[in-house]
Design a protein around this nucleic acid. Sequence first.
DNA 1: CTAGGGTTAG
Length: 884
Amino acid sequence: MKLNCRSRDIYTSISNALSSTANKKDLQKLHSLLITFGLSKSLFLSGKLISKYSQFKDPNSSLLIFRENSLTNNAYLWNTIIRAMTHNELYAKALEFYAEMGKLQVKPDSYTFPSVINACGSLMDLGKGRVVHEHVKELGFDSDVYINNTLVDMYSRCSELGRAREVFDEMPSRDIVSWNSLISGYTSNGYFKEALEVYTQLRIGGLMPDSFSFSSVLLTCGGLGEVEEGQIVHGLVEKVGAYKDVIVSNGLLSMYFKFDMLNNCDRIFNEMVRKDSVTWNTIICGYCESGFYEESINLFLEMVDSFKPDILTITSVLRACTYVGNLKLGRYVHNYMISNGYKCDNIASNIIINMYAKCGDVLHSREVFESMGNHDLVSWNSLLNGYIENGLYQEAIDLLRRMKKSFQPDFVTYVALFSICTELANVNFTEELHCDIIKQGFGSTQILGNALVGAYAKCGKMEDSLKQFETMKVRDTVTWNSIIASCGNSKTSSLGLTMLSRMRKEGIMPDVPTFLSALPLCSYLIAKRQGKEMHGCILRLGFESNVPIGNALIEMYSNTGSLKNSILVFEQMKTRDLVSWTAIISAYGMFGEGRKALIAFQNMKAAGIFPDHIVFIAVIYACSHSGLVQEGKACFEQMKKDYNIVPRIEHYACVVDLLSRSGLLTEAEEFITSMPLKPDASIWGVLLSACRASGDMKIAERVSEHVLELDTNDPGYYVLASNVYASLGKWDRVRKIRTSLKAKGLKKEPGISWLEIRNKVYYFGAGDRFFEQRKEVVELLDDLSGLMAKEGYAADVRFVLHDVGEDEKVDMLCGHSERLAIAFGLLNTKPGTPLMVMKNLRVCGDCHTVTKYISKIMKREILVRDSNRFHLFRDGSCSCKDHW
DNA sequence: CTAGGGTTAG
């Protein structure tokens, strides 16, 4: 630095030097020179010093100099210190000085107000802003363009667009900044239409928009999704060459990202001569938001070579890492931040918490959370979500309790908390949540209302779910979907179908999830007609190309007895996934078409679909239902050897099923004892029911012991064992099992059969005495018994588990639910019509025989679906070839 | 005095 000492006027010399200082060191030297020459009391030079120090981000030095001169009555020095504070974002401090000025009765001038008003706007302090506005009027500065422009901006920042507009309208004269302030005010508050109108007025008035105008209006067009308008603005930008200004090109980038016109973004970006950090952030963030996370990350890596990323760039790329689950890069960027001394504000910390949580690194997520100074709502919610998404429900609940001490949970918190209800199926928690939601006034929000419907159902509180559903004033598609999905079990499936037709009557459009929930309802009910109707609906709405819908249709058709339609849907699908193949393979399996199932499995592999453990279950079951023992065993071996799938308990159950259904009981028993996993009740249960069906009571008794030893909580297995002892006449054992069932509070699932006749579903329980046409049904069954006896039938009373006389046992057999249903069907349909009956448990051996006879005597095709598969009875035999 | 880029759920 050279100071011209020969100059007579040291004052001028220092003054000039001050104006051109480019760094803080020079400034400090000048400052001491100034003191040496005794010029430190000069108002003008002190003012310059204050401004300069604030430019170099040293507000403390500015303050010191000001305090040394604070006796002045002149507004000039006050203006400088207020401006210095505002520049350094110390807005509250700036306002304190303004207040002090008032107390000391220093009269503000027109230069005082812009900074003061700016401070109010930045603090979004509307109250103070209004007071200052009054001062402006009192002092007669209300026609000053400069001041009015700041007022427009201040009111905009406080979201008081009405006041902003008023000031704008009353201005005696306006410049381009006035227009820009109003446009950007509207835009940043989301009033895009108004912003565009003001821009149009500006154009009509003949004023040329400048870079600021373009920047704002481009965002406006982006916000409005007004592609044409945006392109017109773009045209003007090109015409006047405004694209050379980096803020305008940034605006263009941002707009085209909103329009999802990525090619334009690429072109603009590549043609930009000057890029700033906003340019990079816009493009990195834009790609991220359009789902091109890899591009986003690559751009970041490209940028780092030539540009130092700022905190916003870093957070943008961290979000990309979050979306793709790239923990490695996320961690790297986080460490880079730490070692390069980036300061995290709350937003940045929250993004990091979220990144770690979404990438599954809850420990680091928590660490960042705990190291933050002030948590805000988003921080709490982010960690809470992290816990929930990673299955740490207890941690989530603990965190919630901690949070409640200092923060009121908000809407987002509650939305997140619902996954806890559904995952843990915890009624108490759900009820507590429900109370809180009502207390906080979120009770009537759509999303939370919908969530409650699902949560109660998941907790097994169907009545509460329905109550919630009925009390809701507005029911959208999601509400209906929730209630229909909640009806997705055999007990409520017909209610579910009622809900679907109610939904249609109220004119609510079903969507893909609606059908994904509703189609399985048809399966439970064998509601063939409703299933077909839904299929029609799906075609009309154009959902048929949706893969999960196709899969659900295959399942629906096979479950409602139409293998043909299942195949049709499958063949018409343009894309098929593993689930589609699994569905068609199990469809073949259910209908005893084991060979076709195996062919489908071959075709699946040929189509390049890699099998998983589930499709193997379907394949082995298909073999089992068709008696393909060797093939089934081969599949089991193939699974282990060729596909490296470690068999789970379900696979062992399949093989036991395969062997025992084909009568290879000893081999099945050996298989069980040699398996590497501990056989559970399901394994023994499979063998047990096969023993009973085949009548091998020696093994059956042995197996029963195993089942009872396991002490399970599934009543089905006790019933099986009990049946074995009953067949052996060991009634004391039967009673013992019954008492232990009672002690455990377990109840045998009652046998229920049902069928649909003319759009109505009729249910029959075992031994039911109250149902329509009971007399006729009993008579018909009696008549049939007589006819069957002539054909050589004798009741197999081994299938009765009650301690009663032989005659009564025969009666009880006749009361089996499937038989009642069949008789009812025969009575209520025209001769020759095929019947379809569904049973919740496995069909009983005696009923299986009887149905064969009935199909022959009555010349009817009878399709029975039990819990395992289909039985198509025709002319005295069954499609299952007795592999049931 | 006016512009532009970053946070949680569904």
